[in-house]
Each structure stands twice: as C-alpha cells, then as structure tokens.
Design a protein around this nucleic acid. Structure first.
Lengths: 148, 148
DNA sequence: GGGATTTAGTTGCGGATGCAACTAAAATCT
DNA sequence: AGATTTTAGTTGCATCCGCAACTAAATCCC
C-alpha cells in the first residue's frame, strides 16, 4: 500500500465500504419486510420522477439508475409489466425508447419512500450531525465528479 | 421526507450512494481488465489473512466478508477449487468447518492488492484530504456501530 | 439417556445483473 | 443514393447471491 494511498485513506475506505453494505442490506430487508420493491426499482422510478415530463431515454435512465443498458432493459420490462412505467417509441428517432412514469408508478414511489426514509434516518442519518452531513455531501460530490 | 431525515442528510446519502457504486464498479472493471478475481474474493481472502492462523469458521467469514451463509459456501467452493483456501473440519465440533488460507491464496491476495490500491487511490483517495479521510473514517465507524 | 431444540453448513431454486452478440435505425462517407 | 459505420436497445448466456428447506451434529431438557 505505497503509492498515493495513505493508511488514513485506506481506513476511511474500509469504513465507507462496510457501512455502505450494511445500510444497503438493512434497507433492503426493511423494504422486503414491508412487501415493497427493492431499491433498484425505487432508483429508476425516482429518476423518472425527477425528469422533465417524467420520462427519459432508456440509456440515460440506465446511467442515472446505475445500471448497464441490458440491466435496465430487464428492469423496465418488470416495471412495465406492473404498469409503473410505459415504453414509448420516439417519433424523431426510431432507435430510441422513452420510459414514461405512470401515475401508478408515482403512487408506488410514494409507498416506498416512507420505509426508505425511515431506514435512512435510522441506519444513516442518526449517526451524522448536520455539519458532518454537509461534509459528507461535499466530499462525495467531488468523488463522483472524479468518476464521471 | 419529514421525520429525522433533514434535507442535508438526504443529500449526503445520495452522494454517498452514487459515489459508492461508481467507485465499486470502476474497481471491478480494473480488476477484470487485469485478469484478476473480483472484490468479493479479495474481501474473503483478506479477512482470512488478518485472522489468527489465517483461518476462520465459515459463518464468521460470511459476516466479515459481507455475505450470507449460502453465498459464502459457494464462494468458498470456488476459492477451494482454485486452491486459495482449504476447508478443514473442526475436531471439537463436527458441525464446524474452517476456511484456511493457503500460500497460493496469499499470493493471489498480493496480486490483487496493487490493482485494488491503484483504484482506491484514483477513484477515492485522490478526492479526500488527510483531515477528510479521518472524518470519513470516524463518521462511518459510528454508522457501522449503529448497524451491528 | 433419549427426544426436542438449536446451530453450522450446504443445496435447490429463483432473481438480479453484466458482457457479448444481435437487430434495427440513424448518421456518415464517398 | 448506396455502402459503411455508429448508436440504441434487446436477447442469450453465465455469474453471483439470498431465501428457504434440508442434513448433520451439538445442546437442552425431562
């Protein structure tokens, strides 16, 4: 562990790594216990919710939802089967499909969020002061920019 | 997003969440490109490396390596097939198996680490000052304690 | 001591996801 | 305009992983 990776940073990574998996797993357990879809569904639906007209191109959604294109295709298959989104062909470009969030999709998003929020409050936010939360946001914003 | 989850904390979570997946995926890509096993192999081998006599009970290793018991069973199957570890029955308790790191396992660990370290330096450590790394370690140590 | 319970690990199964190959459509090049 | 290349999305396949059910061994309890 010589170049560019001081012991302090390695220790930070280890804590970050373990804490992430723990929080993630705990929230997934809570969602499953509540009979709700998993975070990957939430992520995709939420990105659509934020998007103009609540729709996005498949590949853009894949990026936002942190999935491969093929992974997103399968996820959208399932979401569409549940009528949470609709696939809509693009009139301008025949290659493109848009995923369009439906009202039912919004409703599901609103059912997931309280459980997700409670998990975040309990497993994550409870352990950060306001100042620390700001620091974490600032630090990882830089990290994200570095992996763009 | 009312109770116990201020906007600041939610923002921190979003950055933390996205940055984690980005770093994780980038490191996996680097490992695969170098023809090396994935992080899950590294995690398990490394936990064994740290353990007394370089061996652990299966269930303890599952916890340390952030896997379910069944997930660990399969991982150990593969590691054993590659002779990176050996399963050893416990003389005192017939139910227990120990995973014992082999010299070949140590060698693989030492081949993975430079690539892993380089990824960490580039995708993670480069964006944190020394002070920030200490803060991150402290904060997420608390988070981990809260999900014990 | 013998049956019931608990514990450790494994196996069957299904779900999630990525890579590579594929199809179709658009853009580019000549 | 026609051929080539690039782009968007999908599909085949393989891998990884967790839950639930299972087996075997230890412990508990009477």
């Amino acid at each position: 562990m010589k170049p560019n990776l001081p012991e302090t940073h390695l220790e930070a990574w280890r804590k970050y790594y373990v804490s992430f998996w723990r929080i993630f797993a705990a929230i997934e357990v809570d969602l499953a216990a509540a009979g709700l879809p998993s975070l990957s569904w939430y992520d995709a639906l939420y990105e659509l919710y934020l998007a103009p007209d609540r729709r996005m191109r498949m590949s853009a959604l894949a990026q936002s939802a942190l999935l491969s294109r093929s992974g997103l295709t399968r996820l959208v298959d399932k979401l569409e089967k549940e009528r949470l989104i609709e696939r809509r062909a693009c009139a301008q470009d025949g290659r493109v499909q848009h995923a369009q969030l439906t009202d039912k999709g919004v409703a599901v998003l609103r059912k997931i969020w309280p459980v997700y929020r409670a998990g975040l409050a309990k497993y994550f936010a409870a352990h950060l002061s306001e100042v620390e939360a700001k620091q974490v946001a600032a630090i990882f914003t830089r990290v994200i920019a570095g992996t763009q």
